[in-house]
Simulated assay, not measured.
Amino acid sequence: MLALDFASIISQTLFATSILIVAALGLAIIFGMMGVINLAHGALITVGAYVAYTVTNAGFSLWTAFVIAPIVVALVGLIMERTVINRLYERPVDTLLATWGFALVIQELIKVIFGTSAQSVPNPYSTPVEVFGANLPQYRILLVGLAIVLLVVTYVTFKYTDFGIKSRAVIQNDEMAGMLGTDVRFVYMVTFMIGAGLAGLAGAAVSPIVGADPRTGLGYLVQSFFVVIVGGTGQLLAGTLGGSGLIGGSAAALSFVSSQTFAQTVVFAFAIIVIRIKPEGLFGGQ
Rank of each mutant, 00 (worst) to 15 (best):
L75G: 04
L221I: 01
F283G: 01
M179I: 14
L180F: 09
T191M: 06
L136H: 14
F60H: 09
I79G: 13
L20A: 10
V36G: 03
R168V: 07
R87F: 14
I45T: 00
T233F: 04
E280R: 13
M34I: 09
G239E: 08
G284Y: 06
Q119P: 11
P214L: 00
Y220I: 01
R140F: 12
I148S: 02
G195A: 07
L201W: 10
I37W: 10
Q260G: 11
I275W: 02
A169E: 06
A238W: 12
V266C: 06
A49K: 00
A177S: 10
G245R: 00
V93T: 15
I110S: 10
S250P: 05
Q107N: 15
V156I: 12
Q223A: 13
G281K: 02
A177I: 05
G239K: 09
I141L: 13
V72N: 00
S207N: 13
L241S: 03
T95M: 05
G164P: 05
G145R: 02
G133H: 11
A24M: 02
K111A: 15
W100R: 01
R87T: 12
L237R: 05
K111C: 14
T240V: 13
I209Y: 11
V55S: 01
T116F: 13
G232V: 06
I21W: 03
P128M: 11
G145Q: 06
G231A: 09
A204M: 09
G35E: 09
G232D: 07
S167G: 12
T13R: 10
Q223G: 06
N38V: 05
M176N: 12
W63C: 06
A212M: 04
Y160K: 09
Q264D: 06
M80L: 09
I110Q: 04
P279R: 03
L221N: 02
G181E: 08
I79N: 07
L236P: 03
V67T: 14
G164H: 08
V228W: 05
Y160V: 14
F66I: 01
L104C: 08
L143C: 07
S207A: 15
L282C: 10
L25K: 03
D174N: 11
T182P: 11
I247V: 08
W100S: 07
V121H: 05
F283S: 07
I68P: 04
G48M: 02
L2V: 15
A98Y: 05
V55R: 01
Y53M: 00
L236F: 02
E175A: 10
A24C: 09
D162L: 12
G35S: 13
L136P: 09
A49H: 02
G231Q: 09
P122I: 14
T157F: 11
G203I: 00
A212I: 11
L241F: 10
L62P: 04
R140I: 08
Q138F: 14
